[in-house]
Design a protein around this nucleic acid. Sequence first.
DNA 1: TATTGGCACTCAGACAGCCCGAGTGCTAAG
DNA 2: CTTAGCACTCGGGCTGTCTGAGTGCCAATA
Lengths: 346, 346
Amino acid sequence: MNSKPFVGTSIPSRSLEVLRAIVSDYIETSEPIGSKTLATRYGFGVSAATIRNEMAFLEDEELIVAPHTSSGRVPTDKGYRLFVDRLNEVKLLSQAEKLAIESFMTGSADLDEVLSGAVQTLAQLTNQVAMVQYPSLGRAKIKAIELVPINETRTLVVLVSDNDRVQQHMVNAHQMLSHDDIAQLRAKLNSLLVHHSFAVAITKLSEFTGTVSAHLQEAAKAISEAVHQMVDANRQEKIILAGTANLARNSPIGNLGELLDALEQQVVMMRLIAEMNTDVDGVGLLIGKENNLELLSQTSVLVSNYEKPGSETAKVAVLGPTRMDYAHHITAVRAVASYLTKTLGS
Amino acid sequence: MNSKPFVGTSIPSRSLEVLRAIVSDYIETSEPIGSKTLATRYGFGVSAATIRNEMAFLEDEELIVAPHTSSGRVPTDKGYRLFVDRLNEVKLLSQAEKLAIESFMTGSADLDEVLSGAVQTLAQLTNQVAMVQYPSLGRAKIKAIELVPINETRTLVVLVSDNDRVQQHMVNAHQMLSHDDIAQLRAKLNSLLVHHSFAVAITKLSEFTGTVSAHLQEAAKAISEAVHQMVDANRQEKIILAGTANLARNSPIGNLGELLDALEQQVVMMRLIAEMNTDVDGVGLLIGKENNLELLSQTSVLVSNYEKPGSETAKVAVLGPTRMDYAHHITAVRAVASYLTKTLGS
DNA sequence: TATTGGCACTCAGACAGCCCGAGTGCTAAG
DNA sequence: CTTAGCACTCGGGCTGTCTGAGTGCCAATA
């Protein structure tokens, strides 16, 4: 159901040219375009009448459509698809754009910061909504658990996984904890969980309360819960996004409210992105109704993979109206993904 | 420039009733309302003509305005203001709403979680954009700094302030660090900074690199930078928000795009909220053009204080179109603020 | 003096008719 | 296969009309 390469009647090369012109023009002007304009504005060596014939053919193939009798044509989802699949010239990023990416990516060893920098850059680059999926910890293992006492009853539980992702969670033990208590808890916790995968850890965790001194039961339970939550939070996907304002600006899409809602809820987007396949060059694209969500029938979603050593691959994505600048955005999203891979690799 | 209580000609009580009716009706229907409807729908014992006279008076006082000759009237900002200032019946929260607040607020000792729960609840309760300001650390002091080794070169720096707020930042030391190294760094760092306020800490920090062994200079510099950043991040205000989608749904405000932008950028909102005063009962309100931002000329902002022991007071806020249900929202925002105070107090 | 009914007036919005121009499909000729 | 020509279509902009909700004012009334 994903990215379906175009099959069917093969398209004569001039028809393809015409389609290309239509798509480009529509992307730029967002207005239906007719044979005459097309013939003059683009340097086909033929008359408008000939273009009309071509257009009739393209319409038969359902690559373009006329919003109403006797008005210009607009690409269909299928039209965009063919356009993209046969995209040969890839728009290069401008020097300024490259700079923007690099400057956003510098410094910071902190995963959160890197990702949020990346997603903002991408949103600015494309003027669309940008999303980045957190690297899943899938097969990651627990490397260490630290307990940092904050005050008499509160403790910060820090969980480090072997791909160096760090999470923390505050715990209220509801009882006083001495230094020795903390040490005991830490030791038991680590000997129990370290080197185990997240999946295993979650089962082992149930033994934890049993292994600690009787007077620490309360605290152990609280800590155990915190760890559980963190592990869970990790198996759960998570995305961060930026540029939602662009949605409102760009496109008078009907269901803007619902769309913003869905973005805020995250869950729809998480599933969508997770399920999207990418082709050989690491880019995936769903155009309009290709994703089966009514909600997104007027939008396209573009994803690319990035890698963080030790994690499964994760994705960056761009969401915008079907009439978006595919050529440009594809390079942008790919560039950000590759910078991300590079930055996280070091 | 803030919340200006209404002064000037004192308003006869029936005029006030009429104003009240107009505001309530407009809040509900969002359509201009005329004398006749007003006279019938609300049980004034008088005829439409009399109401018209009242309305003429109210218009003279600039409390209502007619969008065009011969159409119903709509409250002005000043009208809303008077309406709110003379608001006597306070809408109570429904049982369901109280429940919603309580259920969202349960558990979790984690500041981030509590706040994000609160802001989401508030957004749902009001169907508007909700915001919550992080408790500023103003005069807070540093309580402890922990260094948690993550791998050979990376270290997690955890900063605990005396109001038990915890921040952490990953640092890449670009050099191998032994256990002893870490211990040394930790010791020096703590002896230097603990018990100092954030403001002082930032000056003391410059001495740090000088006090550690020569071979740790690299690492010390990186850590010092991280601490600096965290301290800074704290003096800087920060807000989280929820319910932006409601904006799109509710109000076909002209500059939706810009508004969403501003929300995403945060900075405008941070200043606005920070500068808003609250009156005796802990609530502050700016209606329409009362805030001097063109951007927000069609929106009202409602804030209430909450307290976290050891921090300066911070605020929760609701942002929506000027025609919002003030009576209800005021109680909602106050309720959330007070639950927040309660939850964070324990 | 405050209230009321009556009346003439205004205007936004809905509706219908009109024209224009961009665009189409078709056909016959090159 | 390409082209010019032609008749046809239809959305969008413009105009005019009508209607209903609403107004302001005034004279009559309680």
